[in-house]
Write a protein that binds this DNA or RNA. Structure first.
Lengths: 211, 211
DNA sequence: CGAAGAACTGAAGCTAGATTCATTTCTTGT
DNA sequence: ACAAGAAATGAATCTAGCTTCAGTTCTTCG
């Protein structure tokens, strides 16, 4: 016995693992899930292909972890916003704002992990997270309906529609326009206004009665 | 000179071309754009691989034509629905209903041509069509806003959101549920209701004033 | 320093699937 | 029936990208 893994090696290994994940996230951000190549991830992370395989069994395992990381973080943030003890309409707006704002800021990543189809195994993870995200919205909507401040509606369907609407606006055909920083605010404001009208039935930002 | 292409050959060639396109559409419907294989398309169309290449330069060219066909037809139908000379709210509902209803009925094709990422060249076609579709909605919305019957809003953004919301509901995580025929009506009705509230600001199907 | 055990390397192997093309089969006009 | 021109065939080729693994380098400890 002349070798035992020591703290400094552990640290390096951890750093390498992070570097690989960071490179993979960057690749996803730039080319989408399907545009990630093991070779370029390796180069980008400053290691060899073989090393990537030492840390992740398959390409799929790597992608799964990227999706898992990004989604968990996003959903957690949105869920936190949705948990504030104000009335449903405000919570809903806060959640939409959080989701949309972060999606814009994150560039293509958000799209890739929320919307882009992927190999079966990754897809499963992705769908699970997407459902979780929609569930956050659905919970708020259900509250609002129960409290009688939102019009009668199916919370799951409404939540799904909201997720779709926001994703489309952020990553869809308008995306290039959204990149112009000056327009970001406008697009976000419009998107929130639309979602609010759809779900709360209120025309104005300030809730209270019916309109 | 002992051979000149005759009408019967022309007809056969046309039939073969159609058979290939039909096979490709079927493949897209079953496995998505990325699941289309030249070999299986050939087999399915009852010709050899080489023949497929006689009719289409690349796989990409084949896919482009499939996307083109399907999208044009869909958009045309929706545009027609949107052109009826009734008031904006009714036209909007008709258009959403048409789009969503046909998307549900078409199964996976709709998803593939509306949402699925694809090689650059195909992507360009797909994005163009998606923009066209959104434009149909945007025109109605602009009319409604101009007439003062819809709340103030950016028609392009609103239209994009509507397309996203509908696509997500139809092809997203809820899709499996949508397949149960009993639920289709419910999902469609809910989707339309949400879109109506979002765009028209009216809670009720019957327009007139503000609510 | 030397041996033992890990970790790293990157060229080679493998695979799936698109694409080609020499050969064969069909069509037509004499 | 035959020659000429098209069209169809499908096995062979090519290619991109994941995956492996024999050899090399690094770490640790006696």
């Amino acid at each position: 016995m002349a070798y035992r893994r020591t703290a400094s090696v552990d640290a390096r290994i951890e750093r390498t693992r992070e570097a690989i994940l960071r490179a993979a996230r960057r690749a996803v951000a730039e080319h989408g899930l399907s545009g990630v190549g093991m070779a370029s991830v390796a180069t980008d992370a400053g290691v060899s292909v073989g090393t990537v395989y030492r840390y992740f069994d398959h390409k799929t395992a790597l992608l799964r972890e990227v999706v898992d990381d990004v989604c968990s973080r996003e959903i957690e943030v949105v869920a936190k916003l949705a948990a504030t003890p104000t009335d449903p309409a405000e919570r809903f707006v806060a959640a939409v704002d959080g989701f949309a704002g972060r999606a814009v800021a994150s560039g293509r990543v958000a799209y890739a992990v929320i919307a882009e189809p992927a190999p079966a195994e990754v897809e499963a993870t992705r769908v699970r997270h997407r459902r979780d995200l929609a569930a956050v919205f659905a919970a708020i909507i259900a509250d609002g309906v129960a409290a009688g401040v939102f019009p009668e509606q199916d919370p799951d369907i409404a939540a799904t529609a909201v997720v779709g609407a926001v994703s489309e606006v952020i990553v869809g055909p308008l995306a290039p326009a959204v990149r112009r920083p000056a327009d970001v605010e406008v697009v976000l404001a419009q998107t929130i206004a639309i979602a609010r009208r759809a779900v709360t039935g209120h025309l104005d930002p300030t809730p209270g009665g019916s309109r």
